[in-house]
């Protein structure tokens, strides 16, 4: 049984049961098929972005407006009382008096959960440092289900920065519900942290570690690429050594299964060549577009307008 979403905070993917995930995806699919321009009429979204964001902030604001609601908020904390030393708790307490639902992105880990303590309105975590980004994971799952026509028993390769990338941690956590086999492709220095791999093992997930995309390309249904973050490397030479192992070009796709689809949370830098965009495998722009419908579904659910 899915949880009742009305007034629920969306903080961490670990708090989603399988039924919860499927409920969000089902509503997102309906909203993609048929718009609901008056669903959230008279409701206000408080958009509190303490850190830069393009897709997440704009897609949430757009989702609210597509559903007939209004948006207030800020994208630059320097223009708020935070600059004067106001605590996060106080800022959110104030905004919760003006809005019916709050989206928050913050550079500190756990900031969204702290915000939830300050607010009696639902809080949606749009990324708290390197911790969680649950709405991105729901978009990933929606896109996977849409392009593969199923979510169960898929072979999924997670490629790139598996150590610091929050999207891959959350996606791996969510895929536990769907019996996936995971192929973790990363240089040794950026492999999945011990804690995350221990949790996967404890949950009985099948996974293996690899150093190149070529090792796994013929086996997988989903290739989930992430950016290798140059700034994580102490020695620039170390970065130079690994960066080319994770540049995806059409050449590497020769042995791909016909149903393979490539996902990327974006922004991409040079790990995904533009030539791949024209192949039938590219799904990342559709994935970004799907953000709108998944976020519409979440807004409708937490505001009690979707059941």
């Amino acid at each position: 049984m899915p949880t009742n979403f009305r007034n629920r905070d969306i903080l961490s993917i670990s708090e989603f049961s399988k039924a919860d995930i499927l409920k969000v995806l089902e509503h997102a699919q309906r909203l993609k098929a048929a718009r609901r321009p008056t669903l959230l009429q008279g409701q206000v979204l408080g958009s509190c972005f303490f850190e830069p964001s393009t897709r997440t902030r704009l897609s949430f604001e757009s989702a609210m407006q597509h559903l007939g609601g209004g948006v207030i908020g800020f994208a630059d904390p320097n223009a708020t009382s935070t600059k004067k030393g106001e605590t996060l708790y106080d800022t959110i307490k104030i905004v919760s008096g003006y809005a019916d639902v709050i989206t928050i992105r913050h550079y500190l880990e756990g900031a969204a959960r702290r915000a939830a303590e300050a607010s009696d309105k639902p809080i949606i975590n749009c990324g708290d440092g390197a911790n969680q980004h649950p709405t991105q994971t729901l978009i990933d799952l929606f896109t996977i289900a849409e392009c593969q026509k199923k979510l169960n028993r898929l072979n999924v390769a997670l490629v790139g920065d598996l150590k610091y990338g929050r999207t891959v941690h959350s996606l791996a956590q969510a895929l536990v519900h769907f019996n996936a086999t995971l192929y973790l492709v990363a240089p040794d220095a950026l492999q999945l942290p011990t804690q995350a791999s221990r949790e996967l093992r404890e949950q009985g997930v099948r996974f293996s570690c690899h150093r190149t995309i070529e090792e796994v390309i013929a086996k997988v249904d989903i290739l989930y690429l992430t950016r290798i973050q140059e700034e994580r490397f102490g020695d620039p030479l170390d970065y130079e050594r690994v960066k080319n192992a994770f540049v995806l070009s059409n050449k590497q796709l020769g042995r791909a299964r016909p149903n393979l689809r490539i996902l990327h949370p974006l922004p991409r830098v040079h790990e995904l060549l533009p030539e791949v965009d024209a192949t039938p495998y590219a799904q990342y722009f559709e994935q970004a577009h799907n953000g709108l419908f998944v976020r519409e579904a979440l807004l409708g659910l937490v505001l009690g307008k979707l059941k």
Binding site: L108, E109, R114, A130
Partner: peptide, 12 residues
């Protein structure tokens, strides 16, 4: 122990 944890930056 996580220096980036919100509990180390807010009065809480």
């Amino acid at each position: 122990p996580n220096p980036h944890c919100v509990s180390n930056h807010e009065p809480m």
